[in-house]
Design a protein around this nucleic acid. Structure first.
Length: 557
RNA sequence: GGUCCAGUAGCUCAGCUGGAUAGAGCAACAGCCUUCUAAGCUGUAGGUCCUAGGUUCGAGUCCUAGCUGGAUCACCA
């Protein structure tokens, strides 16, 4: 097929009043005459294929092949920031596959925005208070006999999570017992003694009863130590961490102001609500009758705090699509309260990760644990790598580093190549692949490039006439040409998947090139040098693209 | 029940603002390592793009209805 670009002329027919063929013909002739880079054109069935002169690609090649930051923009540190909240864990259970998607997406979108020239602030909001935390604490008090991460050798978040599950088990047993005594299910759910105890514990926590407060601090510290390990393994970082225990009261004042202004209303029992029925939504509780705040209240306060602390041009919340309604309500309430920045809030709503058996439920233990999955990925990378035996001269530590890099490359790419908006299926029975459209395939392409360049270990340049470029070489240059605009496009859509798909195609094309042409063995020095330069440039782009996905590339594998 | 989202090859997914014969990977089958890393390359096979209408030169893409699956409509977060 001839032509580098295709113009579809059908939309112009109304203006040209000519047949598609004649319209295409005349546009083609005009372009060939007036555009210096246009070499020629073809008309097929109303499609105008334009061919660009190889010189154009050659000069683009010469201008950029040495640029280590090819396609990337630098952020202006004085510019307004894009704030991105992600992770947002609860401190009552360990991280699972769903959290992995959230964390990887949040981190990658941050990198993507940075690469597109934005000034990014990454924040985490730890949900460290509330009834669910008290449930773990209560179950620990009742069952643990003083067990700690040290005494059990168990990771802190796992230990606490076990007691959250334990609570749920006991709670359900009590409900059954009450139903057996003639209560309705609804009554039983509200009256189970263990739940009443947890609610009492929450009141004690808010009153900062020392015994409860101290236990809370202790158990949260265990969880944070556990999270730290998982975050580190995932390579996830934040610029700032907010704790709900420190911000949960913030929204209160705003809500009371809103009440005074008549935007909100009070019910007979004293609770405060927003009426959104005119906007097609329901009424939303903002303060309980006893004055305590709910999730929405906290989010209002936290948002206000952030917009005061920073000059924010865009605030992204990476949160699952199960909370779409929550964010619709949040934005609407903030608008009604008169905050013009409400329009700058953007919910990056990603689809749930599902298992063949359905949705993951922490309480029911049907989750793919983050640490387990990471460990399994590393084991798989190790056994594959050992079979191939290409790293035999590496030290054990060097090898382990490569296994880890490949394992995380596979996991991260697997999660990020899917469009964020869409749900995704994960089958634990089938381990994540290392071949085909995968992270390791791209990493492998990079190591091939590095291997060639190590063997040369000298200068190279592009000093050749354009007519000597092979089609495949021009195709690679064209692919690289797309990188910078792609980053901008992907950034506006918050889509690391577009980057993943691009790097895969680039790596694939390079592998074809690598297979079909010789580089070091090429006899013509100019061609050899040009191919080294092209390889190096592809390598740079793979590395930069993978960095946006939070994936490292190894020198060898 | 109201609202929202999704349905593309056996499986997992691409398919940009409507454009040429709908693409990859995995799985299956057949080839390619005395040659720069075979975690690679090449080929074969695999499709009623959920269904039915509509919009127009043209629909996987837009509209309407239906079917199926999911989410949500909490004094949980």
């Amino acid at each position: 097929m001839k032509g580098d670009y295709t113009v579809n002329v059908f939309p112009f027919l109304k203006i040209s009043k000519l047949s598609p063929e004649k319209t295409a013909e005349s546009i083609g002739q005009y372009l060939a005459k007036n555009m210096e880079h246009v070499a020629g054109f073809d008309v097929i069935k109303g499609f105008l294929n334009i061919e660009i002169k190889p010189d154009y690609w050659l000069s683009f090649f010469q201008n950029h092949y040495q640029n280590k930051y090819f396609g990337l923009l630098k952020a202006d540190k004085t510019a307004p920031v894009t704030m991105i909240e992600y992770s947002s864990p609860n401190t009552n259970k360990p991280l699972h596959l769903g959290h992995i998607r959230n964390n990887l997406l949040g981190f990658s979108v941050s990198e993507l925005l940075k690469a597109s020239g934005k000034n990014v602030v990454k924040v985490n909001l730890v949900n460290d208070r509330g009834i669910h935390i008290c449930k773990s604490m209560l179950a620990w008090q009742k069952n643990a006999k003083g067990a700690t991460p040290e005494s059990t050798g168990k990771k802190g978040d796992k230990l606490v999570g076990d007691y959250y599950v334990q609570f749920d088990k006991d709670y359900k047993a009590q409900i059954q017992q009450l139903i057996g005594q003639g209560k309705t299910a609804e009554e039983a759910e509200k009256q189970a003694p263990i739940l009443l105890e947890a609610q009492e514990m929450l009141r004690q926590w808010e009153a900062k009863v020392p015994e409860v407060y101290q236990l809370w601090q202790t158990m949260n510290a265990w969880v944070y130590a556990g999270f730290e390990i998982t975050y580190k393994a995932l390579g996830i970082t934040f610029d700032k961490t907010y704790y709900e225990s420190e911000t949960y009261l913030l929204g209160k004042k705003i809500v009371l102001d809103g009440l005074e202004k008549g935007v909100l209303f009070r019910k007979e029992d004293g609770s405060i609500w927003a009426d959104l029925t005119e906007d097609g939504l329901d009424q939303k509780l903002l303060l309980r009758a006893d004055g305590t705040s709910v999730y929405m209240t906290q989010d209002i306060g936290t948002a206000q705090q952030r917009f005061t602390e920073f000059t924010i041009e865009d605030h992204i919340y990476v949160v699952g699509n199960e909370q779409n309604y929550h964010f619709d309500v949040l934005k609407l309430i903030l608008q009604k309260l008169g905050y013009d920045w409400a329009s700058r809030i953007h919910h990056l709503s990603y689809g749930m990760v599902e298992l063949p058996s359905g949705k993951m439920k922490s309480r029911e233990g049907t989750v793919v644990d983050a640490d387990d999955l990471i460990a399994e990925m590393i084991d798989n990378a190790r056994s594959t790598s050992e079979q191939l035996g290409k790293l035999d001269d590496y030290t054990k530590q060097e090898k382990e580093k490569v296994y880890y890099t490949i394992a995380m490359g596979a996991l991260k790419y697997y999660m990020l190549k899917v469009d964020p908006k869409k749900g995704m299926m994960f089958n634990p029975a089938e381990s994540i692949d290392f071949n085909g459209n995968t992270g390791p395939f791209i990493q492998y392409t990079y190591t091939r490039i590095r291997s060639v360049l190590r063997k040369w270990n000298s200068e190279f340049s592009v000093n050749i006439s354009a007519s000597r470029l092979q089609d495949k070489e021009i195709e690679l240059i064209q692919k690289l040409y797309d990188f910078a605009p792609l980053i901008q496009d992907a950034a506006t859509q918050y889509s690391p998947a577009m980057i993943a798909s691009y790097i895969y195609e680039l790596a694939k094309e390079y592998n074809q090139f690598y297979h079909d042409y010789q580089i070091l063995k090429e006899e013509d020095d100019h061609i050899k040098s040009m191919r080294l330069a092209l390889s190096n440039w592809v390598g740079i782009t793979i590395k930069n693209g993978m960095k946006i996905l939070g994936i490292e590339v190894p020198e060898r594998m």
